[in-house]
């Protein structure tokens, strides 16, 4: 790891001031991805601004058909939150399957989505649920937040403060895990709303995306069988030693079907 200056801030304002002053500053939330990256010297920020002291970022609030989760809420806290379990049980389940218990004790929702790993779980939920990402500057629609592999709409001095998820009782997340890393080879977050279906797909492509063709098919016929004829673009799928593009495309459909079954 390259050395850096370390600052633990107590408020969002302090955090933003600190990053503006830094030459090449980075916020660290749980650090569960950032620290391994830095250990391999793949990143070398000049300043680390630790957000763990910002208490306002650790709340979970249920209000107006919505659950708002602070950016610094750990995966473990989301998984065990009474509000999340009641209003969006699929999201609690997703959080309870990220990484492993020790990682879930440190890793946070804000850190995960700010990193936007193409194989991360939370982005599928943001997209699937149509969540809103709240920052110190604005509200960003989930659909607009993830802009590419490890890229987001965040500006350099912009800090995620919370994510607001619409309540969704009929929803399911199905993940096919990479046998080595346990990240998602494919993850499908499916939400059945009163008038339509939303599908967030992670792992399959360079960046999380909405499964529009899957949604179209399910909007017509909400059943596993409806998925069979859907044709997904194999060319857009990721391909690596763990799964070819063709297999990933197949898995997207299988995971979607299983999510439909779980919702029925």
């Amino acid at each position: 790891m390259y050395n850096f200056s370390f600052e633990k801030v107590k408020s969002v304002e302090e955090a933003v001031t600190a990053i503006q002053k830094a030459e090449d500053g980075k916020f660290v939330a749980g650090g569960q991805t950032m620290l391994p990256t830095m250990k391999h010297r793949l990143a070398g920020p000049s300043n680390i601004i630790d957000l763990s002291g910002v208490e306002s970022l650790t709340e979970i609030k249920a209000h107006n058909e919505c659950v708002t989760i602070g950016a610094m809420v750990t995966h473990r806290s989301v998984a065990s939150s009474p509000e999340v379990l009641r209003d969006i049980p699929a999201l609690a389940k997703l959080a309870g399957n990220i990484g492993d218990p020790a990682v879930r004790n440190r890793g946070t929702i804000g850190g995960s989505i700010a990193n936007n790993d193409p194989a991360a779980d939370y982005p599928a939920a943001i997209i699937g649920l149509g969540a809103t990402v709240n920052t110190n500057k604005r509200e960003i629609s989930g659909d607009d937040f993830f802009t590419g592999m490890f890229e987001t709409a965040l500006e350099e001095d912009e800090l995620i403060t919370s994510i607001s998820f619409p309540v969704a009782n009929v929803a399911a997340y199905m993940k096919f895990e990479n046998p080595a890393s346990r990240y998602a080879i494919v993850g499908v977050f499916l939400v059945k709303l009163s008038d339509n279906v939303r599908v967030g797909v992670t792992g399959a492509t360079a960046c999380v995306h909405r499964g529009r063709r899957l949604e179209d098919a399910l909007n017509k016929n909400f059943s596993p069988a409806a998925i069979d004829p859907v044709e997904l673009s194999v060319e857009e799928m990721n391909s690596d030693i763990h799964a070819s593009a063709e297999y990933r495309a197949h898995l997207v459909k299988v995971m979607t079907k299983r999510a439909v079954e779980a919702c029925n």
């Binding site: 370390f6 650090g31 569960q32 620290l35 680390i48 020790a102 990682v103 004790n105 440190r106």
Partner: peptide, 24 residues
């Protein structure tokens, strides 16, 4: 952060001590 040989408890919960700074 995969193998878990470094797990300790910090404030009562398990943490991978290879993925946490001493200063944290």
């Amino acid at each position: 952060s995969q193998c878990g040989a470094c797990v300790v408890h910090v404030d009562g919960v398990s943490v991978k001590s290879c993925t946490m700074l001493a200063v944290q």
